[in-house]
Design a protein around this nucleic acid. Structure first.
Lengths: 159, 159
DNA sequence: AGCAAAATCACCCTAAAGTATGAGCCCATT
DNA sequence: AATGGGCTCATACTTTAGGGTGATTTTGCT
């Protein structure tokens, strides 16, 4: 039904371009007939045509080029019933590139331990835990431990 | 140091375009001189030039313009464990004597919000939230917000 | 109306958390 | 032998959390 119209619309620029080309040629011919145009001014003609149609080409290209597609990934939360059976989301884990130690710290964080307590528990210094937790926050793209815990639980990184 | 080279590189296409235009004109002139080209074949010239330079224009535009970007949003599914069958432990709640507001603060805490953010969310001052959270910690018998969240979840005070 | 609990807020102070940066050590891979 | 990642630790600094205290205002209840 609308096929013809579509074809016209799609090739609108192309058709207009053809028409303009024809018109321009007629115009030139008419000018040639009406006024005295010196023969050796041919280069001027050619140059003018070249410039005009270069511009046309540029315009055409800009109009007709399809934009490149840039994919933006948006996280969509899907809720699942999963009560007792905790399964570690290994895909997510490897995607986030969390190290063993970082995950360990995250787990202890989730139980409500302070950095000091975690440090004691793991027999390392407080500064070490701070470094780990900072990296965890970075990787999880969060700002606080509470956020980290919340997100990690939602992602099934910890139970 | 590399400024000159840069200028050349940047305008490479432009320069090449100019050169090609000049060459083409020379070529046409040469053809005109060498062979018998009928006068009224002017339109053919013009057409040829038009086509060639349209192509050149298109090519130029494609080369020089930054690619248009079109953002396409792709949803990525993230699986979240959630107990649909969450039942608030009212016994525990009344036993602990948590007020409405305190529970509210606790819930927001669990989502990883800072006191400041909670204050904004509830349209009250930071100090108020501090007071509330302190009372929550007291009543839950914990020392930190992370502990409070953990305990509250275990007690089914929050989901 | 009067009372108690709840909610609000302030100020001051300390503790803990978090950021930034740099560095050393160990281990596996190239 | 070199490279890189993971783990460790330090120092210095900023921000946020939390404790203590007191005060005012709302609100629900008798």
């Amino acid at each position: 039904m609308q096929t013809k119209l579509n074809i016209f619309n799609r090739n609108k620029q192309l058709i207009l371009y053809g028409i303009s080309l024809a018109l321009l040629l007629f115009l030139l011919r008419w000018l040639e007939l009406k006024f005295i145009i010196i023969d050796n001014a041919f280069e001027i003609y050619a140059g003018a045509i070249a410039i005009i149609f270069t511009a046309l080409g540029i315009w055409l290209a800009l109009k007709l080029t399809k934009p490149k597609v840039q994919t933006v990934i948006v996280e969509k939360e899907i809720y699942i019933n999963q009560n007792n059976d905790f399964v570690l989301n290994e895909d997510e884990l490897s995607r986030l590139n969390l190290s063993k130690r970082e995950l360990e710290v995250l787990q202890l964080m989730a139980t409500g331990l302070s950095n000091d307590e975690i440090a004691e528990r793991l027999f390392v210094s407080l500064n070490t835990i701070k470094t780990h937790s900072s990296k965890v926050f970075e990787k999880l793209d969060v700002k606080r431990r509470t956020q980290a815990v919340d997100k990690a639980k939602k992602l099934s990184l910890i139970r």
